[in-house]
Computed example of a mutant assay.
Amino acid sequence: MTASALDAHVVLARGGFALDARIAVPAGETLAVMGPSGAGKSTLLAVLAGLVAPRDGHVRVGERMLDSARPRVRTPPSRRGVVLLGQDAQLFPHMTVRENIVFGPRAHGVPRERAERDADDWLYRVGLAGLGSRRPAQLSGGQQQRVALARALATEPAVLLLDEPLTSLDIDTAADIRALLAAQLAATRTTAVVATHDAVDAVALAAHLAVLEHGRVTQSGPVRAVLAEPATPFAAAVAGMNRVEGVVRGGSLETRRVGIPVTEAAASGLDGRAAAAVFRPSAVTVDAVAADSWTAALRLGTEPGEWLARVSRLEPTPAGVRVRTGEPDVAADLPADAAAALRLAPGTPVRLRVDPAAVRLVPGPEAAASEEHD
């Protein structure tokens, strides 16, 4: 099947939740959709798959209008050419692995002999050659997900929807399935949408990224561009970056409580304007404060380019410890021994600083400027 582009504007209201999201995926490419829990990722995919009817908007695949509010168009799931694959492989337990893969093409009128031959080919492509006679219960979770992918792609869908398909797998199995997905999506030139909470999925599988928050797309574009210049705190967290909003004044980004130093080049043309400082946790230096309380720490003051903060929590990282501080929310990465030497704990006052050369400024919301002048 020739790859088809996906264009959708999904408007839906459910209880107190409202979804109003626009997405577009070029033919044969993959869009990753990331957002916090409850942002609407699964609901968006359910509408695209035809499982939930939108209140307004449209869903178009290639030249086919699948859903439209005006004029009214509603295409049932079985006729959309859209396949949804979630965390649960949902294989037919009474069928063999081969029969599971054959089922879709046979339902679309493919002769049995060809469908069975193609099923064996798909079993080979997903690394399960020789296991076609087994039942799903005889397979591991990772193997079942491989069969589910083969079953989905065997129907040659116009669009493949993946709803966090790796979440329930262990790290090693997820890495294997991720590599398999990347290879097969590229080989089949299938248009795909991947809802995920993991930036690794976006980087490995997708060319484009849409950030969905509170039912709205808050940022979209090439994966690299979105991760390099996150537009919201959530996007920054996904990218593993700090993002602090404020107003540029002289050689720093000023918030109500701190001033983050920036280079003259970074601040060029932004003086007096709302902006956001973006920098990596590894660029932040953490020093102990010779005080046993926040009030005592404030009396000590800071040097230019430094600010005081309290530790809000400690998180493990592969290389050590991530220290999160509040007001503003800034993360710093430290080796485990350095964190231990500082005797850090929630509530501990610390002194932070960041190399101005490590800070990039991106235009921020006008709201930041308004807050600064309040």
Score class of each variant (00 low, 15 high):
A152G: 09
L166R: 01
R106V: 13
E156S: 14
P111W: 12
G142R: 05
N100E: 10
G141P: 06
D201L: 07
G104M: 05
A107G: 03
H208Q: 14
L181R: 08
E99Q: 14
V126S: 02
V200F: 12
L131C: 08
V110K: 06
E99R: 12
G109F: 12
A183F: 09
A182I: 12
H197D: 11
A107R: 15
G132D: 01
E113P: 05
L162H: 02
A158H: 12
H197Q: 14
Q145A: 08
I177R: 01
L209E: 12
V211R: 01
A150S: 07
A187T: 07
V147F: 09
A115I: 02
R112W: 02
L162E: 01
A186C: 08
L209T: 04
V203D: 07
D176I: 12
P111I: 12
P136E: 02
A148L: 09
R178K: 11
A199W: 04
R98E: 13
G104T: 05
R106S: 08
G130C: 09
P93W: 00
L160H: 05
A199V: 15
A119H: 01
T167V: 15
R112H: 06
P111H: 11
A183I: 07
P105K: 05
A206K: 00
Q144C: 13
T173G: 03
G141D: 03
A107N: 13
E116L: 04
P105C: 07
V97T: 01
A183H: 14
L161A: 04
V102E: 15
H108K: 15
Q184K: 12
T191C: 06
L131A: 09
R135P: 09
D118M: 12
M95K: 15
E156Q: 15
P93M: 04
L131N: 04
T173R: 06
R125H: 08
G127I: 10
P165C: 07
E164F: 08
L160Q: 03
D172F: 12
L212N: 01
A158M: 10
P165S: 06
T190D: 04
M95G: 03
P157M: 04
R189D: 12
R106Q: 13
T188L: 08
T155A: 15
I177H: 00
A183T: 15
R189P: 02
A175P: 00
A175V: 05
V159M: 07
M95I: 11
H108F: 14
A182F: 07
L153D: 06
R151K: 11
V102L: 08
V147K: 03
E113T: 14
E116W: 10
T191M: 07
A207I: 02
Q138K: 13
A175W: 11
A129M: 11
S133F: 01
A204C: 10
D172M: 13
P136A: 09
I171Y: 11
D118T: 11
R98T: 13
E156H: 14
